[in-house]
Design a protein around this nucleic acid. Structure first.
Lengths: 350, 350
DNA sequence: TTGTAGGCGTTATCAG
DNA sequence: CTGATAACGCCTACAA
């Protein structure tokens, strides 16, 4: 029913081999023939059957993307970066997200193997063994924001540690000593690294790390709200709060407002991620700015060099830098307005 | 290099035909043979080559998803709904987003045709002609939140009109007469429908629709901020603002805070979409709640019945209902706190 | 410069 | 119940 290379060949009065040659610019074809075939192909609206092509060449021109069940802003930005870069590189995207446990993600990996040329995996649950047993060993894989054991895989990460350390350092610089932290989801790599950065900053300043100041959370607004209520009840009460992401910071701000606590006058609050609305909050939220779309984009770029076999065979571990976005919620910096309309990024270097 | 159906056949001492029969449960196979083949296949770690299978059967077990370049929360929710449902129905997802103009989306459609069994298209830019000329006429398509002309296509929409009408009606019920609206992106279907709902509510209440009260926007926080500044300068100043989405409402809240205007005491503000953080804003934002993930889920369900040829051939136009989520920003309803921690949806019927 | 033919891994149609 | 075998649409030596 569909139109094939044979139809084109017949209409152009040549063999399928010649048609194939002009389509792929492989092998020599007389200029006149090339033009004629091109015209016929266009006139007939010919589209090469990608299944047949894949069967023959073993190339799918498709990249697989495996994501966990993640949160609004972050998700869309990662995808945006991946999508735009893949498009530019001539790849389609086979997406599978919303994975809770390891079993689901392994099933997705198996379903994708054979249908993609390479894979981008973002999952706190996945490990080297899991990858090895569920994927063809020849399939190039780039790990995104994952805990990486050893050097068996290529990975791209955000500088969670450095970003957290910097923002806590900033709080310390403002004179804060009692600094609470609201943790991200347990077992999550980002979460652990941000906690590590928090610890590092305190220790570097000679401040004791108090366990009671580290409150569990799960990256949701509701968790931030609950954690903040807990923090407000503490004796002595901390003068600053570092939430492991902006969503929890927003929950915390909400809780403080409900409790009649002024931010930043009574308690300073900072977040992580610098989501777009951070600057529109009340007060505008100090956060750690990360180029989330850049994370996705970089992963695709690396994957593509792997596919072209350009890259040196040794594994790459890339870490994307972060920047402090200082606004009013920390009590230092930021004009009275929120700079919403001047178009400036309002992002400052560390 | 990879292991094929021939290998399985050889190891099991049968023909490829028999192996194929047990794999697809097509045709009769003696129980003993079936078991033996199954065991061999598992032992060898055999995975059917999907390209070959597609070439033969003309089925890809893949759904295409075409999305515009859209905004954080909305995007991830739509995808989540699509993904989960597709997974349950046994389909993979070929995704292409970040499309600005018609040309890009048409290119994406062409790139997908032949690689998917069906297509979900969400784009304000696409029309019937565009679909017809760029897609095989046999390919089932479901339109998402699109303007639909005639009955040539199946579509799923959110009740933009009804939701907007209800929330404006609510403002009117609270005594507001001067109600400004911040519009969404020009040319966008959601945007137009929400405007239509706004008009309808005013007219039904016998209030004249004033053009000066309708401010252009584009669904971003920045646009909401700018629009609100404009509104605050008006003489006489409106007593309520309906933003066509929550992001713009957030921008508007921010502008009012900067201007020292109290919400809802001096000006009431309402949004549309009810994104998760709406209830954590200051004050908690009254909005129109929509099950965005339900939108995606429903689209996949309909597409699947189309693929099974179960559905009646006549086109379906489904409209998903909305609900008012009344909070403090409109001046009516909501406790002093924001109900953040009691787990209730805080969504009320119209 | 062009054509012929074999095969990629499956499924499906026949006979047996 | 099982086994040959012909497609599916394309690419690519090898021949001409």
């Amino acid at each position: 029913l569909s139109i094939t290379i044979h139809d084109v060949a017949r209409h152009a009065g040549v063999s399928v081999a010649t048609v194939s040659r002009v389509l792929n610019s492989s092998g020599p074809v007389r200029e006149e023939t090339r033009l004629r075939i091109g015209a016929v192909a266009k006139r007939l609206g010919y589209r090469p059957n990608s299944a047949a092509r894949t069967l023959k060449t073993r190339k799918t021109s498709t990249l697989g993307v495996l994501l966990p069940d993640l949160f609004g802003e972050f998700f869309s930005e990662v995808i945006r970066g991946i999508d735009q870069t893949a498009q530019r590189e001539g790849y389609q995207l086979l997406l599978s997200s919303s994975h809770g446990d390891v079993g689901q993600i392994e099933a997705a990996m198996r379903a994708m193997s054979g249908r993609v040329d390479g894979l981008i995996v973002m999952s706190p649950a996945v490990d080297a063994r899991s990858l090895a047993t569920n994927l063809p060993s020849a399939l190039p894989v780039v790990l995104l924001n994952c805990r990486v054991e050893g050097d068996s895989f290529v990975s791209v990460n955000i500088d969670n540690f450095g970003g957290a350390r910097d923002v806590v350092q900033h709080l310390i610089g403002l004179g804060h000593r009692g600094i609470a932290m609201i943790q991200g989801a347990p077992g999550n790599h980002d979460s652990d690294e941000r906690l590590r950065g928090y610890r590092e900053a305190l220790q570097a300043a000679g401040i004791a790390v108090e366990t009671r100041l580290i409150i569990p959370g799960d990256f949701t607004e509701a968790a931030g709200y609950l954690a903040a209520r807990q923090i407000l009840d503490m004796q002595p009460r901390p003068s600053a709060v570092f939430a492991a992401n902006d969503a929890m910071a927003i929950g915390a701000l909400s809780a403080m407002r409900d409790a009649g606590i002024s931010v930043p006058d009574e308690v300073a609050v900072v977040g992580f991620d610098d989501i777009p609305i951070a600057r529109y909050l009340s007060p505008p939220l100090t956060s750690v700015h990360t180029a989330i779309d850049g994370l996705g984009a970089r992963a695709v770029e690396i994957l593509c060099t792997l596919l072209r076999k350009e890259g040196d065979p040794q594994p790459i571990h890339e870490i994307l830098p972060t920047q402090l976005a200082i606004r009013r919620s920390c009590g230092a910096g930021g004009p009275a307005g929120n700079g919403a309309v001047d178009g400036s990024l309002e992002v400052k270097g560390p």
